[in-house]
């Protein structure tokens, strides 16, 4: 997914002279082709995220579209004030490509786990937040990013994530994709959890479980949500993020605002720092977010 995103930055830069790439201190050779082809629009600025956001904002004020890439935790926690004041207050087209959303960097421990990135950014006015399900959807998102008006946070998965998105479903920032219509249950998921939502829905075939892929968490597609959830007796949210302030919160807020008071089961990470290293899949299992566990949780909720 990251390779696709970065390759797309190069492609977009070829098409549009306003596109820049800014990294902090990424791996050797990253976007080598772009650096050789257009060195003046390739920046590697050092381990200095607060500065990077400000510098990118300064360039955006003069018409550039900076695509910034570093690790998700550092791109959110470290420079939150710069994102808020320099990018969001000015409504500038910064694109924050966040490597390792959620539990991707499991072996590296809590300093590298972006389990609160969505919650940190969601209250910031003008900010859009997108978590694609796979590399194919990432390509479509990057196409759409060029013309998006305002700051945009792009949450990356691990890479090699199973492709569940479909080209014929189209893609627009802020428009959810109904992957499977709901009967009794609708799972609303984002990012790579959509593949797990679909697997859970397979296990729940007898009760009719729909899946709404909410790749854009903000602005939330409230209309799409209400339509998809209309017939369901239970709405389930599934995210690789703390249960506080992420997709589940956004969905509950939207349903509440619309006066749609139906039971919502919010599945996400507990309110504690993840422990135990291992792998993304391992930590997801500890949190009860793998497909069989999701299916069990839904069964229990239906039988309550």
């Amino acid at each position: 997914m990251r390779q696709t995103a970065l390759a797309m930055v190069h492609e977009l830069a070829r098409r549009d002279p306003r596109v820049l790439f800014i990294g902090s201190d990424l791996s050797p050779g990253v976007l080598k082709g772009m650096k050789e082809e257009m060195p003046e629009r390739f920046f590697m600025e050092g381990v200095s995220e607060a500065y990077v956001i400000g510098m990118a904002a300064g360039m955006a004020m003069d018409g550039f579209i900076p695509y910034i890439n570093t690790i998700a935790t550092f791109l959110t926690r470290r420079c939150l004030e710069q994102i808020c004041i320099d990018a969001c207050l000015e409504n500038l087209p910064l694109r924050l490509i966040a490597s390792g959303g959620g539990l991707v960097y499991a072996p590296l421990g809590p300093t590298h786990l972006a389990t609160d990135d969505i919650a940190l950014l969601r209250p910031l006015p003008n900010m859009a937040i997108v978590a694609p399900s796979d590399a194919e959807e990432m390509r479509r998102l990057m196409e759409a990013s060029l013309t998006w008006d305002g700051p945009l946070y792009i949450r990356l998965g691990k890479g090699g994530d199973p492709v569940v998105s479909r080209a014929d479903a189209g893609f627009a920032i802020g428009r959810a994709i109904l992957m499977r219509p709901a009967n009794r249950v609708l799972i609303v998921s984002t990012g790579v959890m959509t593949s797990r939502a679909l697997a859970a829905a397979d296990l729940l075939d007898t009760i009719g479980c729909g899946v709404l892929h909410m790749h854009t968490i903000k602005p939330l597609d409230t209309e799409g949500l209400l339509t998809a959830a209309a017939g369901a007796e239970l709405v389930v949210t599934l995210e690789e993020h703390t249960r506080i302030g992420g997709l589940g919160s956004a969905v509950v807020e939207a349903l509440s605002d619309a006066g749609c008071l139906k039971p919502v089961l919010r599945l996400g990470l507990p309110d504690r720092f993840p422990e135990g290293y291992g792998s993304q899949d391992h930590l997801l299992e500890l949190a009860g977010l793998q497909p069989p566990q999701v299916a069990d949780a839904i069964h229990k909720a239906l039988n309550r």
Partner: peptide, 16 residues
């Protein structure tokens, strides 16, 4: 915040 913004503006002027 200002010096980082200023670096960005100065770079933008150079590029443009």
């Amino acid at each position: 915040h200002g010096l980082a913004l200023g670096v960005g503006m100065a770079l933008a002027a150079r590029l443009q």
